[in-house]
Amino acid sequence: MKELQKFAYPVFFVVMAVLPHMLDDRWQAVAITFLIFSVVALSQDIILGKSGMFNMGQALFFGMGAYTTAILSNEYGWSIIATIPLAIIIPALFGILLAGPIVHLRGDYLLVVTIGFNIVFVQVLQNNLGGVTGGPNGIFGLDSLSFLGYDLMSQISVYYFAFIVLLLTLWVMHNLAGSKPGRAMHYLREDQLAAESIGINTRVYKIFAFGLGAGIAGLAGTVFAVQYSAVSPEAFEFIQSVLFFSIVLVGGSSVPGVLLGVFVMFVLPEIFREFATWRYFIFGFAMIAAMIMRPRGIWPATFGKIPKFLIKENNHGA
């Protein structure tokens, strides 16, 4: 498995890097969707998979990033690139604020609360609170991407924008896995009392996970807004959150698992058009089967790596 992964990652990156040149417009759009939803699913993985918190509201942070970009661009005339920092920071701050009072809740309670947040968020968008969200229709006709005076209108540029965002996300997750905060998240997910008893302030790291997951989802929101040059409330409904939640659980808390989940959920239906109506049906069965047969997901999490010098001869290692 390890060797396979070593080999598979470069291949995956190379294929993804040349992919848009081999696809027509429609398929480019599908590929972009895959990239965007992969980033959101990975951000959900930080909260649900890595830290074990039952967050059913990830579409909220995704939407918040998308709306931040749309509003700043349309209402205030910012260039898309300039909206990125706020499209990360605003959802991240909201993630932290919302998580603060709820992270001590047990899994099922947390689940219900985050569903509530998501529903409230969509209601706020639909009712055009503050007069900037555009109501049920949302905001459309966004500017295209431009950078250093170059207009990046083509879909290929959007693809590379999305690809860079995915690479950035993978890089952050890699850094997280080999860091004190990343391990703290694993520990609290495995046994919260043991984690506290070894000196970990679990509350801080739970909130951190929410903030980080929300920030990354927000960034994906920017890409989403660019891709469709529009945002509207129904794209961020709670049912979207259910999808992200299920993808992480069924895929398993690992990069291949999550990407596989996104592929099955969002790309396969495009390949087999008839499959589109069947996808919930099939995914529903996949969820049932996976949870019964592989409760840790199809491609389960591998925890943080340990340095080579600790692995001695005659190791009973995995």
Partner: peptide
């Protein structure tokens, strides 16, 4: 009470949390 799915080394590393 150990972190059952994690390796022995990672379990011990959790003790280094506050020293890091």
């Amino acid at each position: 009470r150990l972190f059952g799915q994690m390796s022995v080394a990672e379990n011990i590393m959790s003790g280094r949390h506050i020293k890091s």
